[in-house]
Design a protein around this nucleic acid. Structure first.
Length: 242
DNA sequence: TTCGTCAACGTGCACG
DNA sequence: CGTGCACGTTGACGAA
């Protein structure tokens, strides 16, 4: 059995006297035969073929392009599922079976591939957007955590200063006894705090905090992030694009 | 009227 | 050079 016969079993041959305007529109008869105009008045083989199929002789422009019928579209869609590109013989065969011009079939497949590609890109964009949103959200949480830790650090430093002042006062009042107080007390306090960080949030948090203490620009960045959060940035990152 | 869809078209590029 | 494709655009059309 030839491929063509095979196809005809699958897709009973359509006579397409109605490929063009009136058959296509959902409203069918009441819509009359619409005159769809192409921007170019260029006689196409397809149009001549369509006019012939519709039994129209007059050289009017009536057959000038029209939506493919549901059946044609369905058939083409099924073909597209099987093969994204058409070899020339297959294209000609398809066209013959559908009562279309081979060029129409080629154009349909080109447009279909374009739609398919844009759909894929849309899906990919959607996935990337979700991933990015998640990262932004996590970043917001981390920034918030960072702020809290900075506040705690400030408290600790303040407490440390108070203690140092009290110790100095006691030393002067007591007449210089117990020369054991070393200038490294500051470093002791920092180490203690660092240990607390490691214990509570892990090494990375402590390292991050340490890095943060080193660079003032980080603080500016934090404020920037807070501004963004306050402006609702975390919620609708992409609103401005959509 | 506006907007989205779709067939058809124009152009530039790759390939044999 | 001819052909086919990707990509962007145009214009007709239907729906909101």
């Amino acid at each position: 059995m030839s491929r063509e016969e095979d196809e005809k079993l699958l897709f009973p041959s359509f006579a397409f006297p109605d490929c063009f305007p009136e058959a296509v529109t959902s409203g069918g008869e009441q819509k009359k035969a619409r005159q769809r105009r192409r921007r170019r008045v260029k006689p196409e083989a397809a149009m001549a073929a369509a006019a012939a199929a519709a039994g129209e002789s007059g050289g009017d422009d009536q057959a000038k392009k029209r939506r493919l019928s549901d059946e044609q579209a369905r058939f083409l869609e099924m073909s597209f599922k099987k093969e994204r590109k058409l070899e020339t013989p297959r294209k000609v065969q398809l066209a013959a079976e559908l009562g279309l011009d081979a060029k129409q079939v080629a154009v349909w497949f080109q447009n279909r591939r374009a739609r398919h590609k844009s759909k894929l890109m849309e899906e990919e964009f959607s996935k990337l957007r979700s991933a990015h949103d998640a990262v932004v959200l996590q970043n917001c949480h981390l920034e918030t955590e960072l702020l809290k830790l900075k506040e705690r650090l400030a408290d600790v430093e303040e407490e440390k200063a108070k203690l140092a002042a009290a110790a100095a006062a006691a030393a002067t009042a007591g007449g210089g006894g117990g020369g054991n107080s070393s200038p490294s007390s500051s470093s002791f306090s920092t180490v203690t705090y660092h240990s607390a960080l490691v214990g509570q949030f892990g090494v990375e948090a402590a390292a991050a905090e340490e890095a943060d203490l080193t660079y003032m620009s980080e603080y500016a960045y934090t404020n920037y992030m807070l501004d963004l959060a306050a402006a609702g940035y975390c919620g609708g990152v992409y609103d401005q694009f959509s």
